[in-house]
Amino acid sequence: MTTTDTIKGKINEAEDMARKIWLAGLGAYGKSVEEAQGRYEKLSEEASKMFDELVTKGETLEDDARSKFKSTTNDVENRVSDVRKKLGLDAEPADQRIDELSAKIDALTEAVAKLAANK
């Protein structure tokens, strides 16, 4: 083998080694892209799942809040109704009954004032 053949062989070996280094770098890049895509897909699935779970939890909380609000509203309405009955405001129009009660209070106030003046 001649010196030229030896040099050409070394050059070919160097070119082959450079090509392999290039391919290894390209392979590393490809592998990192695949891993990144896999992680992105996994995160995307997890985010979607998490969102669905949060929506379900929100619906449950909303239903509970509506139920409690309705219960509280019914309790308040019942209490108001009881107070109206005790005041006699449910038998006849409320404005008329309030006017009558105001007149009675005014009459009682006058009577108390007269009694206080006579002492």
Rank of each mutant, 00 (worst) to 15 (best):
T3A: 09
D5K: 10
D5W: 06
D5I: 06
T6H: 09
T6V: 12
T6P: 00
K8E: 07
K10T: 05
I11N: 02
I11K: 09
N12F: 09
A14P: 01
D16Q: 08
A18G: 00
A18L: 13
A18Y: 09
A18D: 02
K20H: 10
I21V: 11
L23C: 01
L23T: 01
A24W: 13
G25P: 00
G25K: 14
A28H: 07
G30I: 03
G30D: 06
K31H: 04
S32K: 14
V33E: 03
E34T: 06
E34D: 04
E35P: 00
A36L: 13
A36W: 10
A36Q: 08
Q37Y: 09
Q37S: 04
G38S: 08
G38M: 13
R39F: 02
Y40H: 13
Y40C: 06
K42Y: 02
K42M: 05
K42V: 06
S44A: 13
E46S: 06
E46N: 06
A47P: 00
A47S: 07
S48N: 14
K49W: 07
F51M: 08
D52Y: 08
E53K: 11
E53N: 02
E53V: 06
V55S: 02
K57L: 15
G58W: 06
G58D: 05
E59H: 09
L61M: 15
E62P: 00
R66Y: 09
S67H: 13
F69M: 10
T72H: 08
T72K: 15
T72W: 07
T73G: 02
T73W: 09
N74F: 07
N74Q: 14
D75N: 14
D75P: 01
D75E: 15
E77Q: 14
R79T: 10
V80K: 14
V83P: 00
L87D: 01
G88L: 10
L89Y: 03
L89V: 01
D90M: 03
D90T: 07
D90I: 04
A91H: 07
P93A: 09
A94F: 01
A94R: 12
A94Q: 09
D95V: 12
Q96N: 04
Q96M: 10
I98L: 11
L101P: 01
L101A: 04
L101W: 01
S102I: 03
A103Y: 11
K104I: 04
K104S: 08
I105R: 13
I105V: 15
D106C: 04
A107L: 13
L108I: 08
T109K: 15
E110R: 14
E110A: 10
E110H: 08
V112M: 12
V112R: 12
A117Q: 12
